[in-house]
C-alpha cells in the first residue's frame, strides 16, 4: 500500500515540479531569443516601474502597439495595457490605479468631478482620429448615401422605422435591422450625440453587442442590416460590409483627418495622471506617443493619423502641462487645432 502512496505523492510532486520547471527551465531559453526579457529580469527597478494603462477598447490597439515599441527601446520598464471600456477606465483612473486612461470620447463632467474630489490632475492628449462608419450588407444595392437627417430619423429614440423606404422613399420596402455597440462604448456615446443630438439615447429596436467583430458578422449576414462601428472595423472588413457615405462623404483617411467626414469623425484620447508624469518612464512614454512612434502605431492599427499641425498643437499643450479637458465645448466636426491651439 505504501507503494501506492509513494506513487500518488511522487505523481503530484512531479506534476507540480514539471509545470514549475517548465517555467523556470524554459524562461532563459525564451529570454535568450528575446534579449529584452533578460535585461528586464536583471535590471528591474523597484515597484512602480510598471506603466499601467486601461480604458477604451477602441484605443487599445494603438496603445498596445506603442507599448510594445516603447518596450523595445526601454527594456527596464514594464507596461500593462487593458481594455475594460472608456467608462470603466476612468473609474480605475479615479481609484488611482492607472497612470494612463484611454478614451474614445472626451472625459465627462461627473468623471472630472470624481477626479477633482480625489485630487487627481490629468492632461488630455488626443492620439488619433477615428471615423464612426455606418455599415450595411454588401447585398444592399439601394443605399449608397444617407444624410445626417435620415440617420437621425432612423436611430433617434422615438424612431418607429422598420423598413428602408421609411428612411428614404427611394429605397425599397426591405426590412431594416439595427446593430451597434453596447452603451459602455465611447463609440455608442459619440454616435448617439452626433446623430441623435443627445448622448446615450437610441431607438428601442436595437441590437447592441459588446464586440465589434460580432456586429460586423451580423451585418455581413443580413441583407437589411445597418450598424455603426469604428473606422478600423470597417476598413479591415471591406469584403464583408460596405460603408455608406454620410452627407455625400465617404469615410476615408483623408476625409476623417481633415474633418469633412462630419459629424462622425472623432478624436481618440489618452488621459495622463499628472502625478505619474513625475516618474521619468511615464513622461518618456507620453513623449514617445507624441512623436513619430505614435504616428506609426496609429497607422499599424488602421486608425487615422492626426495632421501635423494638430500634433504640433497637442505637443505644445502637453509641454505646457495644462491640466483638465479642453473638449468641453467641442462640437462634432470641429478642428482640433482650434481646441488645443488656443491659449
Amino acid at each position: 500500500m505504501s507503494n501506492t502512496r509513494t506513487w500518488v505523492i511522487s505523481g503530484l510532486l512531479a506534476a507540480i515540479a514539471l509545470i514549475g520547471c517548465g517555467d523556470k527551465g524554459t524562461t532563459p531559453e525564451g529570454a535568450s531569443s528575446t534579449p529584452t526579457a533578460t535585461t528586464t529580469g536583471e535590471a528591474k527597478p523597484a515597484a512602480g516601474s510598471t506603466i499601467s494603462i486601461d480604458g477604451s477598447t477602441t484605443v487599445f490597439p494603438i496603445v498596445s502597439v506603442l507599448a510594445e515599441d516603447f518596450k523595445k527601446e526601454n527594456a527596464g520598464v514594464d507596461l500593462v495595457v487593458n481594455k475594460a471600456g472608456t467608462g470603466s477606465g476612468f473609474k480605475k483612473f479615479a481609484e488611482g490605479n492607472l497612470d494612463i486612461a484611454t478614451a474614445s470620447r472626451p472625459i465627462k463632467d461627473d468623471e472630472i468631478k470624481t477626479l477633482t474630489e480625489k485630487k487627481i490632475e490629468f492632461i488630455e492628449i488626443p492620439v488619433a482620429y477615428d471615423g464612426v462608419s455606418v455599415i450595411v450588407n454588401p447585398g444592399n444595392t439601394w443605399a449608397k448615401n444617407v444624410t445626417v437627417e435620415e440617420l437621425k430619423k432612423a436611430w433617434s429614440k422615438d424612431s418607429t422605422i422598420t423598413t428602408w423606404d421609411q428612411i428614404n422613399p427611394s429605397f425599397p420596402k426591405e426590412k431594416v435591422t439595427f446593430f451597434g455597440p453596447t452603451d459602455n462604448h465611447g463609440t455608442y456615446e459619440y454616435f448617439t450625440e452626433a446623430i441623435n443630438g443627445k448622448k446615450n439615447e437610441i431607438r428601442k429596436e436595437y441590437q447592441p453587442n459588446q464586440e465589434y467583430t460580432a456586429i460586423v458578422t451580423a451585418v455581413g449576414g443580413e441583407k437589411g442590416a445597418i450598424a455603426f462601428v469604428g473606422y478600423n472595423y470597417y476598413i479591415e472588413n471591406k469584403d464583408k460590409v460596405t460603408a455608406l457615405t454620410v452627407g455625400g462623404v465617404a469615410p476615408t483617411e483623408a476625409t476623417i483627418a481633415d474633418g469633412t467626414y462630419t459629424p462622425l469623425s472623432r478624436p481618440l484620447f489618452i488621459y495622463v495622471n499628472k502625478k505619474s508624469l513625475e516618474r521619468p518612464e511615464v513622461k518618456k512614454f507620453v513623449e514617445f506617443a507624441l512623436g513619430e512612434a505614435g504616428n506609426t502605431a496609429v497607422k499599424d492599427s488602421s486608425y487615422v493619423q492626426l495632421p501635423q499641425d494638430v500634433r504640433d498643437a497637442i505637443k505644445a499643450h502637453f509641454e505646457a502641462a495644462e491640466s483638465g479637458t479642453k473638449m468641453k465645448d467641442f462640437k462634432p466636426g470641429q478642428k482640433l487645432t482650434d481646441v488645443y491651439g488656443k491659449k
Binding site: T27, T50, S52, S64, K71, L79, V80, V81, N82, K83
Partner: peptide, 17 residues
C-alpha cells in the same frame, strides 16, 4: 479580476500583472 490584454514582460512575482 483583471487579467491584462497586453503585458510587456513575464510576471516575476505574485503581485505582478
Amino acid at each position: 479580476v483583471g487579467a491584462a490584454s497586453y503585458v510587456s514582460s513575464l510576471p516575476k512575482g505574485l503581485k505582478d500583472s
